[in-house]
Amino acid sequence: MLQIVDLGLSYAGRPLFSRFNLCVEAGEIVALLGPSGCGKSSLLKIIAGLASADAGEVFFAGEPLTGLAPEARRFALMFQDFALFPHLDVLGNVMFGLIEQRVPRREAAVRAELMLADVGLAGFGPRRVWDLSGGEQQRVALARALITAPRLMLLDEPFSALDALLRTGLGDEFRRRLKVANIPAILVTHDPAEAARLADRVVSLS
């Protein structure tokens, strides 16, 4: 599905990685493991189209992605801090991507309610995002990403802001949902145990 060929990136004159290659098959979850500052998050941003690499190319389903805008790629990126929109309520956050897909507001709201119920947040629609716990915010971010039916899920340390117990539970749930929906995913983490538990394959970046 996703193919990264000879990717090179440097930051402030220091090479982060060069000639990096990776292949992610349909429905496969790959964990990228590495210490902070090794360029894991930058790699996700490059795949999402939010940043550009110094060299190399990224393909999806055989098509080169260079020059394709982030919104045209349909890859959902989940951030460490969840990046929920503070001016929108929970429903508004989940509906966000549907509105961009020109889905009528009423239909988008219904689908968002269903998605919220699916992630265990039934009735949370009118709540303000800053009133939610860390775990609830994480679920909203997941619902917001899943509802757009992304072709690829990019997870940037999505559990690092949560406590240990919640991290394990949510991690397993994430894995199950991605498998059910058959969405390939790249999970960036610095925790080897988490990588081993959630991913089909672990790639070490050093």
Binding site: K45, A48, G49, L50, A69, P70, E71, R73, R74, F75, A76, L77, F79, D81, A83, F85, P86, H87, F96, G97, I99, E100, Q101, R144, A145, T148, L154
Partner: peptide
């Protein structure tokens, strides 16, 4: 403005202008 907010909007399908209008401007 957290840089992740407009970036999240882009990955959810918003064009740069839509991302500004729906996420950055309300902020």
């Amino acid at each position: 403005l957290p840089p992740n907010l407009p970036a999240a909007a882009r990955t959810l399908g918003a064009t740069p202008w839509r991302s500004f209008w729906r996420v950055s401007w309300p902020w």
